[in-house]
């Protein structure tokens, strides 16, 4: 039992070390891809970002709507229903925007990245690149990683904006909160620091989700089952890592 635990711990530390080394390799390959092959990154921004827009916008609208409903229901008891705009904005910008976007991103774009790279490995496409003297990490993984990292903050911003629209529709249009008070409370209570926190979180979550997606795809066992497992692992690990990092970043911002 203790021996199993020991070996599990050693295995985890090895994987964690290898993941950090892998991250450094991606970072090392990034400048040349950004400068010389930016079109590859643009294509991946389209694949991971633009193609995720529908799910992000639909989810954002309804999450915002729920915030409007719940916020109104709670605040009206304290005669503070006008503050629903501020509550929705703070919740979306600081927490729900980055976190829910990262979880949706992992489910939509992360799985696509992992399975695509895993299948490329299973069908020898990555080996073929190696044999053509083309580094598959730089040619395949780095553009996908960068595309994800760039897309995530933009998707989180879209999620928050559409979420605010959902909160507005529910609380102002349906529940009768005053139009001016809704926006004024938001303007007064949401500070630049809150937006900065949301942006930092979405960048960190973008790095985590993209890194784990390409890592799992690249290290997939090259079989149908192996690719499926890698895809699942990328979602599960991203979800756990995002929530842990969300707690840590929130604690750091509250302390400062």
């Amino acid at each position: 039992m203790i021996r199993d635990l020991y070996y599990s711990l050693i295995g985890f530390l090895r994987t964690f070390g290898a993941l950090q080394f892998f991250f450094l390799r991606l970072l090392a390959g990034s400048p040349s891809i950004l400068v010389n092959r930016f079109s590859l990154v643009v294509q991946q921004i389209f694949n991971t970002g633009a193609l995720s827009l529908v799910i992000i916008m639909v989810s954002g609208f309804f999450v915002g709507g729920v915030l409007g409903l719940q916020g109104y229901d709670s605040l009206v008891k304290f005669n503070a229903a006008d503050s629903v705009g501020a509550v929705a904005a703070l919740s979306l910008v600081k927490e729900l925007g980055p976190v829910v976007t990262a979880l949706l991103f992992a489910g939509r774009a992360g799985t696509a990245l992992s399975s695509e790279i895993g299948l490329m490995k299973a069908t020898d496409q990555l080996s073929a690149m190696e044999m053509m003297a083309i580094n598959p990490i730089n040619r395949v993984l780095v553009p996908r990683f960068l595309g994800g990292v760039i897309s995530m903050p933009m998707l989180a911003a879209v999620f928050s904006m559409v979420g605010l629209l959902g909160a507005y529709v529910v609380s102002v249009v349906l529940l009768g909160v005053d139009f001016g008070a809704f926006w004024e409370q938001m303007q007064v209570n949401v500070e630049p620091g809150d937006i900065r926190e949301g942006i930092i979180k979405s960048i960190v979550f973008g790095i985590i989700a993209s890194l784990l997606a390409v890592w799992e795809g690249y290290h997939a066992v090259p079989t149908a089952e192996g690719v499926g497992r890698a895809t699942t692992r990328s979602v599960v690990k991203t979800a756990i890592a995002v929530l842990i990092f969300d707690f840590m970043i929130t604690a750091i911002f509250l302390n400062s």
């Binding site: 299948l119 490329m120 020898d124 496409q125 073929a128 053509m132 003297a133």
Partner: peptide
């Protein structure tokens, strides 16, 4: 490797 060409068993074309 630039002096090599390799034909993989399944072709390994980029899909």
């Amino acid at each position: 490797r630039k002096r090599f060409g390799m034909l993989f068993q399944n072709g390994a074309l980029l899909t």
